[in-house]
């Protein structure tokens, strides 16, 4: 049972949050991961997420928003079910990162931070994701895909569209 009545989160997530706040000397420490985990479940950091997390951590909603707006992975608008994040930073750029990004734009028919009409995919150009030696690389949600070619991207997108892609959160 969650310590919060009427939690907006699933029982598992609520229980996880109950435990998370106990791990640190100061419970506010749970804020950043909690926002990310809440986003994983809800799809984005909604107002309701902000409210509940503020309550869980005894923070002002303003505090939560101050923090949430700082971190680039956190979003306040829904993304697609699969958020395709293409790295175009230097190592990827040198090995075709922009080509991959362009290909995704073309293939999905959407631009940076846009969502497909069927809400299955969203696209983001992101900064270095730490896969420089296997460039070009991208992440679909949290899963890395590297040494990309446009052909490989097509396969990856097709796999996700078919609901068979990895999606570990």
């Amino acid at each position: 049972m969650s310590t919060i009545t009427n939690s907006i989160f699933s029982p598992e997530t609520a229980a996880r949050f109950d435990r998370l706040v106990t791990l640190y000397p100061v419970k506010r420490s749970a804020l950043v991961p909690m926002l990310l985990y809440a986003q994983d479940e809800v799809g984005y950091v909604s107002d309701a997420v902000v409210t509940e997390i503020a309550e869980r951590l005894d923070l002002l909603e303003l505090d939560v928003r101050n923090v949430l707006s700082y971190y680039s992975m956190l979003r306040t608008k829904p993304a697609g079910k699969y958020n395709v994040q293409v790295c175009t930073n230097i190592s990827c750029m040198l090995r075709g990162g922009y080509e991959i990004l362009d290909h995704c734009k073309h293939k999905l028919g959407i631009g940076h931070k846009e969502v497909t009409a069927d809400k299955v995919f969203s696209l983001e150009e992101v900064e270095c994701i730490g896969a420089c030696c296997w460039a070009p690389a991208m992440q679909v949600n949290y899963d890395f895909h590297d040494n990309l070619t446009t052909v490989k991207v097509d396969e990856i997108l097709a796999t996700y569209r078919a609901g068979q892609g990895k999606d570990v959160k």
């Binding site: 107002d47 002002l60 909603e61 303003l62 505090d63 928003r65 101050n66 707006s69 700082y70």
Partner: peptide
């Protein structure tokens, strides 16, 4: 009172009041 915060970052950083526009 803590009614003012700092939001976003870098050159987008901005002073923000405690009632956001969308609410």
């Amino acid at each position: 009172v803590f009614a003012l915060g700092i939001q976003n970052r870098g050159s987008s950083a901005v002073i923000a009041p405690n009632i956001p526009a969308h609410q």
